[in-house]
């Protein structure tokens, strides 16, 4: 099938989906407060933007998202490298990892609030934990999976220190695997953003909870679609970066 027909089919599918969604509340089959029709969304969106609430909520959420992602992915890559490179580090941490890893990220919410209060730092903390494990295991696996033959090349040219091995061989060779982990984390982190903000930290999640308590379901939808849009943008940006970083691959 050509690219064009596939795009056309995808567009048609979406159009049908929107039409059915529009029809159900209009025909009175569904309560309009519970399921607002898509045609109501642009107006709700404009209202939200004009009041300034939209931009403030989105900026706040984005700053939680990016900070949490940076902290969680940074720690995940750093500790993943240590654990992938040094048996000793891996052995010492083996049971700690087993103990902490199964704890769902959201189970940290109580501590986040106790330690940081209902503040941005609490949201960052929750997001960072959600991201950390994914990136940690991806990095550890990628580092450990580097072909020994490649490491031998570095040794053959005299690069024998652990640091040289890391910079010359391990990191570049492990980059594809690490990036896969980070990309998964990009989606995971949005989940954590909403969760963290639902507990009251200012941002998109909190704004949705406010709207829902007022039964302003169209506003809730505005933010749901906002998140879908932001995620799409960020993911597309990341894929572009990934393709550039991995341009050496066949």
């Amino acid at each position: 099938m050509t690219r064009l027909t596939r795009t056309a089919l995808a567009a048609a599918g979406l159009a049908v989906f929107l039409a059915v969604w529009e029809a159900l509340p209009r025909l009175g089959l569904l309560n309009e407060t519970l399921v607002p029709p898509p045609s109501a969304i642009p107006a709700a969106f404009l209202r939200e933007v004009r009041s300034g609430a939209w931009l403030a909520a989105v900026l706040s959420s984005l700053s939680h998202y990016l900070t949490g992602l940076a902290v969680g992915a940074g720690l995940g890559v750093g500790l993943g490298i240590l654990s992938g490179m040094f048996r000793l580090f891996e052995d010492v941490t083996a049971w700690i990892v087993r103990l902490l890893r199964p704890i769902p990220g959201l189970a940290w919410v109580p501590f986040a609030i106790i330690w940081f209060g209902v503040e941005p730092a609490a949201a960052v903390f929750i997001i960072a934990i959600g991201v950390f494990w994914i990136v940690f295991f991806a990095t550890q696996g990628a580092i450990r999976g580097v072909d020994r033959d490649m490491i031998e090349v570095a040794q053959a040219f005299g690069f024998r220190s652990a640091f040289a091995r890391l910079v010359k061989i391990l990191l570049p060779a492990a980059t594809p695997g690490i990036l896969v982990g980070v990309r998964t984390a990009l989606g995971q982190a949005w989940m954590a953003v909403v969760a963290a903000e639902i507990f009251g930290v200012y941002g998109v999640g909190q704004r949705m909870m406010q709207a829902s308590s007022l039964l302003a379901s169209d506003i809730v939808l505005v933010y749901m679609l906002t998140m879908a849009g932001l995620y799409g943008l960020i993911d597309a940006g990341f894929v572009a970066l990934q393709n550039w970083l991995l341009r050496w691959r066949a």
Binding site: D149, M150, E152, V153, I169, P172, W248
Partner: peptide
């Protein structure tokens, strides 16, 4: 090396 072993990212 027998198998060249170039570093593919360079």
């Amino acid at each position: 090396f027998q198998d060249a072993r170039l570093l593919p990212w360079r």
